[in-house]
Design a protein around this nucleic acid. Structure first.
Length: 493
RNA sequence: CGGGGUGUAGCGCAGUCCGGUUAGCGCACCUGGUUUGGGACCAGGGGGUCGGGGGUUCGAAUCCCUCUACCCCGACCA
């Protein structure tokens, strides 16, 4: 009975329902009173904070600094870069007034028609325009370059159809915006940040990603080149998990940002921007979790080890607490996030199920039997296995185990991706294989028309032109025209 | 924005077709007791504008209109 309350829809029944159930039941987020906007709950936010902390560290290690730019963007700014406005205009929230007043009929408040803004403000869908308008004032000479700023912010893109974390009208992200004196330096920056994202995804989220270049159709509005990391979810669909853009001089020209070169000339500044969002939460959930709940990689889990005492009466609980206390101190000193759950209003079995649902990597159970034998029961979330382990040097054992779990989770995801990445030669074969899900490596003639045709007929898109791997040329599977290398196709979120 | 579905206590649902005393059940919650190695049990208790508004009727959770939110499938996008 009670079991059904927490039970998730199995992935085999409905993957999207499973995802929805999991986000809600693991207490990560919920829908809000505002359509399309979510409330990120403390447990979900704790995971996001762990992501932020690590990414922020990586950004700073690569020379970046944080700053903050306004939420509102003058409407006129957006229209300065033609492709950019084209890409975002359809999903912008607009502020038109700055005051409310009491409705004369007493039914609450209404917008005061007299408080109309001189120029309407856009709620940022991304900040390139306001930032380049600002950078214009910061940059006079090559000596002012590079500028390597990042901001942690919220953005709004008015979406028709939303899904918790994967696509919401408002989301949290970071956006890096850099300005450089040379084309080469900006291109290097864009690629460097792509690799930072790739490292983060693989080493912290334990999500293997393909790094590559977007085709023209999929490129960021206003970019010269868009780099992407693409992950594969358990249902065989791809998820774009982070992008890094080489913006060329497009924004510098739109906002007239020029600088005095070393050689005494004048040139437009070269730019990049790059971002990852709370969508990463979706990637994390859909990469590892199972029908019992979340599976979190130890490096991002808010709680890494939970200790559940099994006892009768106060004395036994006290004895167990005294026994594990030094262990907890040692683990904490080693930086392990550990909790001793001595709450008395839930039975051990309930706690076991709950911590499984929440994806805590390691659970220890300790009762009278263990006290007598100087052992503890260690349960792994990733494999759902249990083992009785000696209490001696348990801290070292657990620290190693967390490492092993991190590795294992990555390896599982990696093997899944390998098993679901196939090379196809013909368009017929492509259509057949596509139905099985996963990534398909195929030759493409490089034209937007062919990509569009494939998308219309199969719903598959080019996720990226991989930077690594097989670079052998061939012939386009659709047109037979020359292809420089195989590209990565999939149906995507 | 099109097609379909759902909205009844904090959560999950029954009741709606065929209108009729006081709207039920499970979980959760509160009190007391017994329990504690995989979601404990007994007894007692509290909690509802039946998604909102309007209409039909002597009478509406139930019938009609309308709005709204969420979910699924499409079109569009991170």
């Amino acid at each position: 009975m009670a079991k059904e309350l927490k039970e998730l829809t199995p992935r085999s029944v409905s993957y999207s329902q499973w995802y929805q159930d999991l986000v809600i039941k693991a207490d990560l987020a919920e829908n809000s009173a505002v359509r399309g906007c979510m409330v990120i709950k403390p447990y979900g936010y704790a995971i996001w904070e762990n992501m932020q902390r690590e990414l922020d560290r990586m950004f700073k290690e690569t020379g970046h600094v944080n700053a903050y730019f306004p939420l509102f963007i003058p409407k006129s700014f957006l229209s300065k870069e033609a492709d950019h406005v084209e890409g975002f205009a359809k999903e912008c929230a607009v502020v038109t007034h700055y005051r409310l007043k009491n409705n004369p009929d007493g039914s609450g408040v209404v917008v005061d028609p007299e408080a109309k803004l001189e120029e309407e403000l856009i709620v940022r869908p991304t900040s390139e325009t306001i930032i380049w308008n600002t950078y214009k004032n910061w940059i006079q000479s090559y000596r002012d370059l590079p500028i390597l700023c990042n901001q942690w912010a919220n953005v709004v893109r008015w979406e028709m159809r939303t899904r918790l974390f994967l696509r919401t009208a408002e989301f949290l992200w970071q956006e890096g915006h850099t300005a450089h004196a040379t084309r080469e330096e900006a291109e290097e920056e864009a690629v460097k940040m792509l690799h930072v994202y790739g490292d983060f995804a693989e080493n912290f989220m334990a999500v293997p990603v393909h790094k590559g270049v977007k085709s023209a159709n999929e490129r960021f509005a206003g970019a010269v080149e868009t780099y992407t990391i693409e992950a594969l979810m358990q249902d065989g669909k791809a998820l774009q998990s982070g992008t890094s853009h080489f913006l060329g001089q497009n924004f510098a020209k739109a906002f007239d940002v020029q600088f005095a070169t070393k050689e005494g000339g004048r040139d437009y500044v070269w730019a990049t921007s790059w971002g990852v969002s709370t969508r990463l939460m979706g990637a994390l959930i859909m990469s590892h979790s199972d029908d019992n709940g979340l599976v979190l990689p130890p490096k991002l889990a808010p709680l890494q080890v939970v200790i559940v005492p099994i006892y009768k009466g106060e004395e036994q609980l006290k004895a167990i607490a005294d026994k594990v206390d030094p262990l907890i101190s040692k683990l904490k000193a080693a930086g392990v996030r550990v909790k001793f759950d001595d709450s008395d209003n839930k039975k051990p079995g309930w706690k076991f199920a709950e911590y499984e649902l929440k994806g805590v990597p390691v659970r220890l159970a300790m009762g009278l039997r263990d006290m007598e034998n100087n052992t503890v029961e260690v349960a792994r979330r990733d494999t759902l296995t249990k083992q009785t382990v000696s209490f001696e040097n348990l801290d070292t054992y657990l620290i190693n185990l967390l490492d092993e779990i991190q590795q294992n989770i990555f390896q599982k995801a990696f093997d899944y991706r390998t098993a679901n990445t196939r090379t196809v030669e013909t368009y017929e074969e492509f259509k057949v294989e596509l139905e099985k899900g996963g990534f398909l490596l195929a030759h493409w003639d490089g034209t937007p028309e062919t990509e569009e045709l494939i998308k219309d007929e199969t719903k598959a898109t080019i996720r990226c032109i991989p930077l690594e791997g097989d670079k052998t040329p061939g012939k386009c599977m659709v047109t037979g025209k020359p292809s420089a290398q195989r590209v990565l196709f999939a149906r995507a979120y």
